[in-house]
């Protein structure tokens, strides 16, 4: 059970992110929850490729030893950039909503629309 600790951390962080998205009423906090969820996905990818006693897959004056998997790390870079793009777009929408309704609380926005 103790060897699964990184995966349990992934599940815990993902749970925090999902709970933030579902329970909070503030749009900025919901975007923060999405960021936490992205972080848990990154941690899951890096954890998936770890080998016992592995070193980083870089040959420049590398010590002896097995190397950790490299494809998942490349996918992590992709995921970070896409998470950044998503966050930027969502923040732009939040600013636009704040300009239109004067608030970023979801309750206020829905009441004003009707």
């Amino acid at each position: 059970m103790l060897t699964q600790l990184p995966y349990l951390a992934v599940v815990l962080i993902a749970g925090i992110g999902i709970a933030t998205i579902l329970l909070k009423k503030n749009l900025i906090k919901m975007i923060m929850g999405l960021g936490v969820l992205t972080g848990s996905a990154n941690l899951f990818l890096v954890t998936l490729g770890y080998r016992d006693g592995g070193i980083a897959p870089i040959y420049t004056s590398a010590p002896e030893g097995v190397m950790v998997l490299s494809t998942v790390q490349a996918m992590t870079v992709t995921n970070i950039v896409i998470g950044f793009a998503t966050t930027a777009l969502l923040l732009a929408f939040a600013i636009m909503l704040y300009r239109k309704y004067g608030s970023v609380e979801t309750g206020d926005i829905r009441r004003l629309r009707e």
């Binding site: 950044f84 930027a88 732009a92 600013i95 636009m96 704040y98 300009r99």
Partner: peptide, 20 residues
């Protein structure tokens, strides 16, 4: 490309804030 894109995003967000 990344320095251009991130700077464009930052400038756009900042211009959205400063009008308010």
């Amino acid at each position: 490309e990344v320095v251009g894109a991130v700077s464009v995003i930052l400038l756009a967000l900042l211009s959205g804030i400063k009008e308010k």
